[in-house]
Amino acid sequence: MHLTVRYYAGARAAAGRTEESVPAGRSVDELVGELGDRHGQRLAAVLAVASFLVDGVACHDRWKPLPPGATIDVLPPFAGG
């Protein structure tokens, strides 16, 4: 099984893509480390301050294993009003 990672705003720009598929079997924190290693320091910096949705629900337990087939939305801080 895989996870779908969707990037928004600054995360999309830093990753250079809107979406990617990664193998399942990890937590959000493990995923953050892997994605930062894969895409570089610019994305790692965004991921360090981002919020995450798991299948549309805010993730509060970043060490809990992600369900196979889940969609992870990466939401960097937004400015504006």
Rank of each mutant, 00 (worst) to 15 (best):
M1I: 08
H2W: 00
H2Y: 10
H2P: 12
L3W: 01
Y7V: 02
Y7S: 04
Y8M: 05
A9Y: 08
A11M: 08
A13H: 13
A14I: 04
A15W: 00
A15Y: 00
G16V: 03
G16F: 11
G16S: 06
G16L: 05
R17W: 06
E19C: 05
S21E: 14
G25A: 05
R26N: 08
D29F: 03
L31F: 01
L31V: 00
V32K: 13
G33L: 02
E34C: 02
E34R: 12
G36H: 07
G36C: 07
G36A: 09
D37C: 04
R38G: 00
H39F: 10
R42L: 12
R42K: 15
R42V: 14
A44N: 06
A44D: 10
A45L: 08
A48M: 08
A48I: 00
V49A: 14
V49K: 14
S51M: 15
S51L: 14
F52Q: 03
F52E: 02
V54N: 04
V54R: 03
G56C: 04
C59D: 11
C59M: 12
C59F: 03
H60K: 14
D61V: 01
D61A: 11
W63R: 13
K64G: 03
P65C: 06
P65V: 08
G69N: 11
G69P: 08
I72L: 14
I72V: 15
D73F: 05
D73I: 06
L75N: 07
F78L: 15
A79Y: 05
A79I: 12
G80K: 11
